[in-house]
């Protein structure tokens, strides 16, 4: 099926559904690289269909559902387990201190520490591309670990130690072997392996300081 070079892969999927096979199932929502719904595997690499131009793809392409997740139908995968693993790392701000009159302030430097991980759209490209995630169903995966790193690095959060204990278990940090597949496949270019390595150093520091760090 020929497509113009400036068309997106998502346009191609829409064209297939509209003109060739209306039974084709795939996810899409924003169409602008923000929601993370349209992540698919193309010629062995994970990417967002809405951010991939046809001119950047070869003449013939093979589109598959993301690996590492149960396939529900066509390109639609079941991501329940993925989100359950996110829940395990407390993916929200924890702060029991009295509420300030206005917002909880951060300095410029404190904000910059979380600028990179907060752009994660939880598309699942990273976890899907991780060979450990695919082989070990219990492994939290790069996405959940990145989420943990995001809140542990947040100056307003007060559950860093608790969160670090959660990700330091046998199914967490130490299952990451620094393969960089998550970094290679992240459509937002987030340094996920670097963040996980940072958590590893923090966990070691905490262990050797008797649990006093973070």
């Amino acid at each position: 099926m020929p497509m113009p070079p400036e068309a997106r892969l998502l346009d191609a999927l829409e064209t297939i559904k509209a003109d060739h096979d209306s039974s084709l199932a795939f996810r899409r929502s924003c169409g602008h690289g923000v929601c993370g719904s349209c992540a698919v595997r193309v010629n062995g690499r994970n990417m967002l269909a809405c951010r991939t131009l046809m001119k950047d793809l070869p003449h013939e392409i093979r589109i598959e559902p993301l690996r590492g997740f149960p396939v529900m139908r066509d390109l639609v995968v079941d991501m329940d387990g993925f989100f359950v693993k996110h829940d395990a790392v407390l993916p929200y701000l924890v702060n029991d201190e009295p509420l300030p009159e206005r917002e909880r302030l951060q300095s410029q430097a404190e904000q910059e520490r979380i600028l990179e991980p907060i752009i994660c759209i939880m598309c699942g490209c990273c976890s899907s591309s991780c060979p450990i995630y695919g082989a070990d169903g219990e492994y939290l995966g790069p996405s959940a670990l990145l989420k943990a790193a995001r809140f542990i690095s947040d100056s307003r959060d007060r559950a860093g130690g608790r969160r670090l204990d959660k990700v330091s278990g046998p199914d967490g940090l130490w299952r990451c072997h620094g393969i960089f597949e998550c970094v290679e496949s992240c459509p937002k270019g987030i340094d996920i392996t670097g963040r996980i390595s940072g958590l590893k150093r923090l966990a070691v520091k905490k262990a050797f300081s008797g649990g006093k760090s973070t």
Partner: peptide, 16 residues
């Protein structure tokens, strides 16, 4: 293929 690489990356090969 122009802008997007395909298949197994060198990092995955190094891990294997």
């Amino acid at each position: 293929m122009t802008g997007i690489r395909a298949g197994i990356s060198g990092y995955l090969a190094a891990w294997a």
